[in-house]
Design a binder for these strands. Structure first.
Lengths: 334, 334
DNA sequence: CGGATTGTTTTTAACGTTCAAAACGTCCGT
DNA sequence: ACGGACGTTTTGAACGTTAAAAACAATCCG
């Protein structure tokens, strides 16, 4: 494996000149640059990243903790990871995966990776309400950016990128409204979830804007499962009042709604319009296809990397992106 | 950030002694070791990985190319990644993610990562028939291990770990047989797929062993989609002959089968037993739950890391692991 | 023509670690 | 007392790169 020294000898220049040819080519005279480049090519030289990192103390690696919540399925994780990787590579960086316990217990792992100079910073995801990681990292001066706000904190301890759940729900409501639905229910999560409150808020506001009723039309599911989604839908339908639209907080809950509707002989899309969230692979795979709010993964990843690797001057950056409504059969005009 | 030098000064020993305290503690006198360890603790010293890697030329990082086939969904990728990460960490290593074009076009990317000393080796997955990567890497002398055999090669160019698809299919067939099914069909892929041929072979052999018919009971789907699975099932049922069991090559195809059966008023599990492959999150989320063959992810990951980081003495290692049949409602005794 | 200016290249000194060899003690047998 | 053997510690050099400063060369200006 060729080194700078060997290239330098071959091109008959000093080591530093070869280094400059790579990192500051404008400093070289045109003919020298070409000569050096020929030698680099000829010897198939590639800079040793470890030596470079040792000298510059920047490893160009970004840590990402691969999540593993047993209950929750990460249906869009592969999309996210691919987007994140691609965005990192566009800046010459890479993603280093690691596992860590949740909450504060995981902090030593983050600290260690940073202290050993294995990563320059972190991308956080799976942000929880009152997530302790953000404050901790900020306190340690470890660079990070979060995919997801730290809910229930007035001042956010660090930069983040997030998808506007309220706007998403509102889009779903308006879409159902435009296809004639007038009693649109919401399947949500317990109040403790910041993400849940964000999305239910958007539904409520949009309904009020359009003059639609909201009372008695919210069901809070205890967990994110098909079963709970179906139960919640059953409760809604059994309450006696008509429901012709359902905005679900997740694709999983929406699938539960679809199942319950079908079980009762109602046709999703025709009798009741249903929408989900996140546009997971399931959404286009079920029948009828599930209308869902897609997260703009590429843009999210791009912003995350930009913020993390940016000059970070002044106040932390906050970016709220709009999801995109992907319309499928479950909300076909009825 | 503390360095070896500072720890050495604090403990009043030489730099090398501190290094030895970490890498070869048996060489130190007990009291020296303790003194050094106290200093390490006190100064909160962590070895700089870049300096270490530069010296030893081992980065303790394993490259994994995050796949992105547009058509195919990676329903178990997060499970795999988590297992792989955990297994790597058990040996003090980590996973570095990257993206690369498929086939030979991606090889420069692999080569580059290795040449720049950013990874020690690679874990390959999403192995295709005649996959060129294995031969190429072997030729370059770049360490790797593959999750998945290189199909259609008599001598495998490198070590691999794989799941025994034939055994899996056979388990599914025997399970359906035990609950009384006697005409068990197979939903597969085109003949060009090595993985497909492996699984269909297991089905055929198991049926013959049990004295069950196989002729006219195989359907080859053009692509891995719910739609194709449903179409294939329709074709089977329209052929006039009875079918009381379906072994599908994938969970997706199995879901298609479930859908078509339900559409025709047949009850999966009661009228026809259905099994899938891979035990994706979908399997336990649909209704009825889908009986499926789970890949032993933790064991796979463990083997991959062991082989890749092992002494690699002599001939390449090959490990064929048995999948586990997870029984759910879709194959409930009818 | 001398001094300043600019452009290009080289020299020197790190970055933080580990390897190999040398040095230092201590104990032993003779 | 001496040489050897062992156990522990230190010394010197190297891994491959880049930052900073120094050196050199060419050009410009008064």
């Amino acid at each position: 494996m060729a080194t700078l020294k060997q290239v330098a000898a071959h091109a008959e220049v000093s080591v530093q000149t070869v280094s400059n040819a790579l990192n500051a080519p404008h400093r070289l005279r045109a003919d020298t640059l070409e000569r050096v480049n020929r030698s680099i090519e000829l010897l198939n030289y590639r800079p040793n990243r470890n030596a470079r990192s040792l000298r510059t103390s920047a490893v160009e690696l970004i840590g990402y903790c691969v999540p593993s919540w047993p209950n929750q399925t990460h249906l869009v994780m592969d999309q996210f990871l691919h987007a994140l990787c691609a965005a990192a590579e566009r800046t010459g960086r890479h993603i280093l995966l690691f596992t860590a316990p949740g909450g504060v217990d995981g902090m030593p792992t983050y600290d260690d990776l940073h202290a050993r100079r294995m990563v320059d910073g972190f991308v956080l995801s799976q942000t929880e309400t009152h997530d302790p990681r953000h404050g901790w990292l900020k306190e340690q001066g470890i660079p990070f950016v979060s995919f997801g706000r730290v809910w229930k904190e007035t001042t956010q301890p660090g930069p983040w990128v997030d998808v506007d759940g309220a706007a998403g729900s509102a889009m779903a409501v308006r879409h159902l409204y435009e296809s004639g639905r007038r009693r649109i229910a919401f399947l949500g999560w317990p109040k403790s979830s910041g993400l849940g409150e964000d999305r239910v808020g958007g539904w409520r506001d949009a309904c009020k804007d359009l003059g639609l009723p909201t009372t008695g039309l919210t069901v809070r599911c205890r967990e994110d499962s098909i079963e709970e989604g179906a139960r919640a839908t059953a409760r809604l339908l059994d309450a006696g009042r008509t429901v012709d639209g359902i905005v679900a907080l997740s694709d999983i809950l929406a699938l539960g709604a679809l199942r319950e509707l079908t079980r009762r002989g109602l046709t999703p899309g025709h009798d009741v319009g249903v929408t989900g969230f996140d546009d997971s692979p399931l959404a286009e795979v079920v029948s009828p296809g599930l209308t869902s709010l897609r997260q703009p993964m590429d843009q999210i990843a791009e912003e995350l990397i930009t913020i993390l690797t940016g000059s970070s001057n002044g106040s932390p950056v906050e970016r709220l992106l709009r999801p995109e409504l992907v319309i499928r059969g479950s909300s076909a005009p009825g």
